[in-house]
Design a protein around this nucleic acid. Structure first.
Lengths: 366, 366
DNA sequence: TTGAAAGCGATACCAC
DNA sequence: GTGGTATCGCTTTCAA
């Protein structure tokens, strides 16, 4: 536990002044410091395993090269961690470090988490949520460049830029996938509407029917919950004791857990997947969708891409800010990093269809 | 937004000196500063919404009140996030902040993650892993008080203190639970031995048989993998085409995903859980075990408690370190530093038996 | 080509 | 009681 070497230690060892050390180690040596001295300085630095004290640097430069990430429960829940992974990867590649604070879904901690991060002089802030949702943005986020990932500002007019998945399109493409396999009687099992993800995915499902010129049977859309048991009971309602000809031939689920429940119900009823009924998940949950029996066809959430896109946009703004000084006006109007659908500072990232073994051709005669 | 207010701004507004501001705002005002001035200072601070710049504080005090957490993939995987949640809760209650860096399982990033954190002057370090495993501890962790959570130092002789779950006892108590329901023919489905968790849980299972005075049927112990499909195929091997009298009456799984696979297999074979076969998971995975159909009996990993215990121990050490640097040997001096930061204590936290609906009395006649 | 000095923001000590 | 001053580690002028 020795004290770390400082620039002064290096200077002493090399027999030069601190400023020389600073110049050389920051690449401004040539033309300012004798080559011989440069050499000695580099050797000394290596010998002492010197690296600059980032705290002192932050104080001096008025920028910390730290991005604060506030999450509602990304760290502590099993979901959506890849948003942070993507964000962190981009930050690292730009020489930034991310600091994550998880509020464990306690909204009263939002404000203080942001405050803490701000006190630590973060250069920018990102708010990440588990599941798409409107966010009551902590007001003090406006003090530095900020961005939202997987959530959007609940103030209708405008607010902070956001990166979210294109749920409507995801729902539509899921429906189109089974339609392309010949299915017509397609059920949609969704969670509650506490998150806009459910209604949006259902909207997409409806869009697919509209495009195909078919009417939507509203009885086939049921909102049950988000967990395995909800999927199980929802499927039972759809399938148990129902004439084969009255059964939906495909069941789309709003997440992979629901799909597990549906498959459990099918097996319990002696039905095979996908021979008797096709089942589709949503999310492509890590080590769940791929390892299910049968492996789940699903609509993958572009978590990593969302994190990457959000951080890229954020850093663009951070690096545009003069030098830490005042930046009144807030993070407004700067044109987003020309990605797909950027409407009113919301960037939509498309989901990815993943076809595995749980969806197949519609059974003969249906 | 404007630059944040500094102590100087407050001093000016209150018409006093910086030192007065510092004293008053740190509670050392009485007896040093006139009551009237104190009042003015407090008002000025409030008016300017002043809070001290933590960066400057860290530089000044040589301690940042930040604990660095390095994780192999806790953030980005769906598992074990509650270790961090528990650790963070304890840290916060002591006025510390945690910053998390996830290496995404890339061991070559260990060293640099620790270096980065050290550069930011963290007061302590914690390494957290997904799943119990021996850890090749980054050497530079020894520079500040450090602790391991869910992993242990792979250097046999000594190394860093660690907090780990008592897997042997967990395996034993799981077996004892089904034994208490009358089961005698009990299978154990475990993942590979890449993590010591599997062999330790199996050891516990063997212990239970020894205590009960029964022999272990080694054919009943199969190591397959950790995912749903592994559980499915493992169960098929145990149950498919096997005479009812030759079937195990209970299947213990090394995690909840395996248990899902086992239940899927049972349903597929027309067997009921727990009437025909009892199934038990391990981990009590969030929103999986509880919502399975049937809800899984399982052995809960004490993740939150582990995080709490680890952080508590770490902070004890951090706060014991004399304020600031201990000078003496310059940077690079090494030998004498072998202080109590490198004692070899392992704390075992017991798992918790959670009985739900997937385990029941042994079928009649078995 | 080099080194001395001025901050960045906050605190603790010590003269007044 | 008060306010000036050194200090933490670093970068960046500016003089020599």
């Amino acid at each position: 536990m020795n004290r770390k070497a400082t620039a002064l230690d290096v200077a002493k060892l090399a027999g030069v002044s601190r400023s020389a050390v600073s110049l050389v180690l920051n690449g401004r040596g040539d033309g300012n410091v004798a080559l011989e001295s440069q050499q000695r300085i580099r050797e000394a630095a290596a010998a002492l395993n010197y690296s600059p004290n980032k705290i002192a640097l932050s104080l001096r430069n008025q920028r910390s090269r730290v991005i604060g990430i506030v999450s509602d429960q990304v760290v502590t829940s099993p979901f959506d961690g890849n948003i942070i992974a993507g964000a962190d990867a981009v930050a690292r590649s730009h020489g930034f470090v991310t600091v994550v604070m998880d509020t464990e879904l306690d909204e009263s901690r939002d404000e203080s988490a942001v405050e803490t991060l701000l006190d630590r002089q973060v250069d920018g802030l990102m708010y990440v949520t588990v599941g798409l949702r409107p966010l009551h943005v902590p007001p003090n986020m406006a003090r530095v460049p900020s961005i939202l990932a997987n959530c959007f500002d609940d103030r209708p007019e405008a607010g902070l830029p956001a990166v979210i998945p294109d749920e409507v399109r995801g729902g539509r493409e899921a429906a189109e996938h089974v339609m392309s396999l010949g299915h017509r009687d397609i059920a949609f099992l969704a969670g509650d509407s506490l998150t806009p993800a459910a209604p949006r995915r259902i909207d997409g499902y409806r869009d697919a029917f509209k495009v195909a010129g078919m009417p939507v049977n509203e009885d086939r859309v049921i909102q049950v919950g988000w967990d395995i048991d909800a999927g199980f009971h929802g499927a039972m309602k759809l399938l148990d004791g129902v004439e084969p000809s009255d059964r939906p031939t495909a069941i789309l689920c709003a997440n992979d857990r629901l799909a597990i429940g549906v498959v459990l119900a099918c097996y319990r009823l002696g039905l095979n997947v996908p021979e008797d009924v096709s089942v589709m998940g949503y999310d492509d949950e890590f080590r769940v969708a791929k390892t299910m029996v049968p492996a789940l066809s699903t609509m993958a959430l572009p978590l990593r891409e969302m994190g990457e896109a959000a951080m890229t946009a954020l850093l663009t703004e951070v690096e545009a800010v003069p030098n830490g000084k005042d930046d009144d006006g807030g993070p407004g109007a700067s044109a987003g990093a020309g990605t797909e659908h950027t409407t009113s500072s919301q960037t939509m990232v498309p989901c990815r269809l993943v076809v595995r073994d749980s969806t197949g051709p519609v059974p003969a005669g249906r």
